[in-house]
Write a protein that binds this DNA or RNA. Sequence first.
DNA 1: ATATTGACGGGCA
DNA 2: GTGCCCGCCAATA
Length: 107
Amino acid sequence: MTNAYEIIYSIVKQIPSGKVATYGQIAKLSGNMRWSRVVGYAMNSCSDNEVPCHRVVNRFGEVSSAFEHFGNNMQVVLLKEEGVKFIDIGRVDIDKFKWNGQLGDIV
DNA sequence: ATATTGACGGGCA
DNA sequence: GTGCCCGCCAATA
């Protein structure tokens, strides 16, 4: 596993609690913005406990349908528990909880 | 080895 | 301002 997976996992694992990152952001941090698809694919294969795939949302800040597969929007509940506010069911306030990236949280 | 799919993003009409 | 289209890399079947 020395491919895109490892790279993407590394970044996703860096997402702090109470914050969410978009695929594009992870993709860009991975080195290429077009990895957006690959990022999602890596998440799909997210069998690692250390990968907070539930903190990864699409560019709209909405949870993907696949998350629903994990249960009843369990990722939404998890984020709410972390302090993330939701504008709608399945949509987080990405406008305010968007992860700043590897910079940390210098907001 | 080839073809298709896949949790998306950005640009252009 | 809105809507639609395309592109892209990787994994799986």
